[in-house]
């Protein structure tokens, strides 16, 4: 199949960047990233700069890849990362527009590569249970209801790819932050420090310059792991109640 690609090219963080048009010959069995590999191979053979894009596991779990494909994060297939999207979902002769995930908090590093370290800093602010190695009691000491564990898992399935931010018209990171808050709060081990956690994580999220949630749910619709906006509600609940119920003023 013959494809026309319009790809965002940007040399580094400072440069303005713009779209370039390329032709590529692909086959239906290829993954989207393999199609880009083919393009890059051709560019290299012509001694031109290949298109930079982030990728690693190519099996939909590491969260490294991600780009806007025809206006959608990770492309047209629901619940699918870019690396798991295959070319059979496109038509011969089609023009495909490829852009980086865009948000002030995700500055472009090069071409389609963006800096998502803001996510790491949100986790560092409180996305953990404060337990040192060796302190843990036996794993079966605290029973956790099966559905509760399963619900925590649903939230923990987040791969941190940033599609939620990319999809949100407000560039908000509440689904990412909410998923982590929700994962840990639902477990008895994590509930202990849930007040401090939600305060710190939300503060960091605001500091990073993400937009505010207006409950559009575009994040949920585009999330490759289908993380529910119910997790955002849970975070709101935790945040509001922890703001008013604690005796201490938290920093």
């Amino acid at each position: 199949m013959k494809l026309t690609l319009k790809i965002w090219r940007q040399k580094d963080r400072e440069e303005t960047g713009g779209f370039e048009t390329y032709q590529v010959e692909a086959s239906e069995e290829m993954s989207f990233l393999e199609m880009l590999d083919v393009l890059n191979q051709e560019l290299i053979e012509q001694k031109k700069e290949p298109v930079a894009f982030d990728h690693d596991c190519r099996e939909g779990i590491c969260g490294t890849c991600g780009m806007m494909i025809n206006g959608q994060p990770h492309g047209p297939l629901k619940a699918t990362t870019t690396c798991q999207l295959h070319m059979r979902h496109f038509n011969d002769g089609e023009t495909i527009l490829i852009e980086p995930f865009r948000a002030n908090s995700f500055p472009v590093v090069k071409d389609l590569v963006v800096d998502r370290s803001a996510f790491d800093r949100i986790i560092q602010a409180g996305g953990y249970i404060s337990v040192d190695t060796g302190q843990a009691p036996d794993g079966n000491v605290i029973p956790i209801e099966k559905d509760q564990a399963s619900s925590a898992f649903d939230a923990a399935a987040c791969i941190g790819c940033g599609a939620c931010v990319a999809a949100c018209p407000n560039a908000s990171a509440v689904l990412f932050t909410g998923a982590k808050v929700s994962h840990l709060t639902q477990l008895p081990q994590g509930d202990v420090e849930s007040k401090r956690r939600v305060q710190r994580m939300v503060a960091q999220m605001n500091k990073e310059g993400f937009g505010n949630c207006s409950n559009i749910s575009a994040c949920e619709a585009e999330c490759p792991k289908e993380i529910s906006v119910a997790n955002i509600a849970r975070m709101n609940r935790e945040y509001i109640s922890s703001s008013f119920s604690t005796d201490k003023v938290m920093d």
């Binding site: 953990y128 249970i129 099966k146 994962h183 477990l187 081990q189």
Partner: peptide
């Protein structure tokens, strides 16, 4: 010990209806 440590960190392992691993 690994299992204990991971449970304490909040790893949502599969559980039985009784709540045990």
């Amino acid at each position: 010990n690994i299992i204990d440590q991971c449970v304490a960190q909040g790893v949502p392992f599969a559980r039985e209806y009784g709540g045990l691993l």
